Amino acid sequence: MLVAFNKPYGVLCQFTDRSVPPRPTLAGFGLPAGIYPAGRLDHDSEGLLLLSDEGGLIHRIADPRHKLPKTYWVQVEGDPDEAALEALRAGPVLRDGPTRPPGVRRLDPPPALWPRDPPVRHRKTVPDAWLEIVLREGRNRQVRRMTAAVGLPTLRLVRVAIGPWNVHGLQPGSWRAVS
């Protein structure tokens, strides 16, 4: 079984949390029993999370060696010029080494997404922009670190697709079985 879940902002990609007070987890969304996440999505990121009860499938989806593209829509602080976009496309060097060159394009107009709860802070004097970033690797908080490295801090991060699967038609907190 493979399940596509639209993970809301602030939810952990696990079924239990031992912190005090406990934070929201996947257990609160009525997902089928016996499935596990194929990869992770930070608690402050939103969007597509794939879950399965098949260990081999989870490995093929999550392991960067299989190079499944992961597509993110990223709201960044600032108005990226072509030099900033080229620096992203080149694959910025992070503390843990160079990144593989991602696909990067500006989304204009901004994507039509569900409202985030809580909303992203809006500042009248600081512009923002939306980018689509496609990765074929998966490091901890990689998109956020890449945009920061080129002077464009991430305000909102939504994963919209992993390989052929996408989040379209799923509201935050909802899921569907996929083939």
Rank of each mutant, 00 (worst) to 15 (best):
R106C: 12
P109G: 07
R121N: 04
H122V: 15
V104N: 00
V126R: 07
D108F: 09
W114D: 07
L113V: 12
V120S: 00
H122C: 08
Q75G: 05
R121M: 07
V104T: 07
P80L: 04
R121E: 06
G56K: 10
P118C: 05
V93D: 05
P115V: 11
I58T: 10
P69M: 12
L57E: 06
G55Y: 06
P101W: 05
V74M: 01
G56V: 06
V74A: 01
V126P: 06
P69N: 13
P110G: 04
P110H: 03
P98K: 08
L85E: 00
K124A: 14
A90P: 15
R105G: 08
V120D: 03
D128L: 02
V76N: 06
V93A: 05
P64L: 03
V120F: 07
D81L: 09
V104G: 02
L68P: 14
P102R: 01
D81C: 13
E82K: 03
V93N: 00
K70E: 01
A112W: 01
H66R: 01
A90C: 11
H122Y: 12
R65P: 15
R123Q: 03
A87W: 13
P127T: 08
E77F: 01
R121P: 09
G55H: 03
E77S: 14
L94D: 10
R65Y: 14
D128C: 11
A87K: 14
P118N: 01
P101I: 03
H122S: 12
P111W: 10
V76R: 04
H122T: 11
Q75M: 12
P92K: 02
P101N: 02
V104L: 04
L85I: 14
